[in-house]
Design a protein around this nucleic acid. Sequence first.
DNA 1: GGGCTCTCTAAGCAACCGCTCACCTTCGGG
DNA 2: CCCGAAGGTGAGCGGTTGCTTAGAGAGCCC
Lengths: 208, 208
Amino acid sequence: MSTAEETAGGEAQPWGEVTPDAARRLLVAAVEAFAERGYHATTTRDIASRAGMSPAALYIHYKTKEELLQRISRIGHEKALKVLRTAAEAEGSPTERLAEAVRSFVRWHAGQHTVARVVQYELDALGPDARAEIVALRRRNDATVREIIEDGVAAGEFDVPDVKGTTLAVLSLCIDVARWFNVNGPRTPDEVGALYADLVLRMVGAQK
Amino acid sequence: MSTAEETAGGEAQPWGEVTPDAARRLLVAAVEAFAERGYHATTTRDIASRAGMSPAALYIHYKTKEELLQRISRIGHEKALKVLRTAAEAEGSPTERLAEAVRSFVRWHAGQHTVARVVQYELDALGPDARAEIVALRRRNDATVREIIEDGVAAGEFDVPDVKGTTLAVLSLCIDVARWFNVNGPRTPDEVGALYADLVLRMVGAQK
DNA sequence: GGGCTCTCTAAGCAACCGCTCACCTTCGGG
DNA sequence: CCCGAAGGTGAGCGGTTGCTTAGAGAGCCC
């Protein structure tokens, strides 16, 4: 966000806030491993060796394997939420804001799909406290989208019989991008974002 | 399918084809455990004790823990595909067929969400051969939905600029129901099915 | 009733897991 | 030049995992 160069799906320095350098390398390695094999199937030895270190080095920077997942989940969710809220709080009609929100949220889930996969699908591996924190962040996601849709209905731009259900469906659609998106596939994150923004406007009955 | 009584989300005897009785009990226990904790976090001792047996009893009916997942994945995918194709091959306009396909596919993913969760999210835990088999079944899902949408476009009932992308989005939307659906939540599988059928008809620009 | 099959169990093996500990290296400050 | 803090390693501990083995009961045909 604060760096000059950005790629289609996210930042050039995604984990710039994590220091020192070794801690960041371990965290990046953990994201890759968790996304590939899942949290429980990933060993601490695998994470350490991906980061070019011995198994014991992990415990200098993190107390447990679960702390790694907590850090990844929190930072990832905060980034996604920031992306969504930036679009939601921008100037413009509800139609424009909803389109931009979906476009950037989808772009993030496609471009950062390794992080997104960990963040979205490894929630149950967290302990109760950490999970509660993440669930609270998700509720803010939900509220952000619902408010835009409510604004659009109030302004007469949208035709939505079931606001809560439609909100759920819109978010579900965006989040599931992280599951199927393939870097070697035919679509770029930008293209998926544009397609999905169009589809969501149709779902809420917005005139184009 | 062959039994008389059916619930909203699926059959009354979901695993009737699995014999003998002990093998079915183990399989049902495995579905519950995999859905709750995930494949890798589930131990063979946990599965056996849920079925009221000793850990060794599992290996009389299944060669490995992975064979259990294979069986579950294959049966689950075949059932979901059957539900989808039954709706797709019914009489009626593309609009009616798409609505019914989404309605029943979503109903299945909501009603059988424990099976669906295992089937959809534990694919990577399978070995290469078993995974290839499942991927082939998924492609048939994809083709089924795409054909209905193509029919609708050809008949002038739908307005879809990107058929492949829209097909992907429709299926993604339906499948993700398995992730968020909660039995204690406010919606029944029937209600979610009806809501989603309406949303999908909007996505393809069908006149109602 | 003796043998045969099928089903299940108690006990345990080898491998691997998350994590710890004693020790080594590097490096800036006095 | 010594020192202490910070970051790293090799070896390994206790516990758990998937799976195996030897053998016990229950039914069933002859």
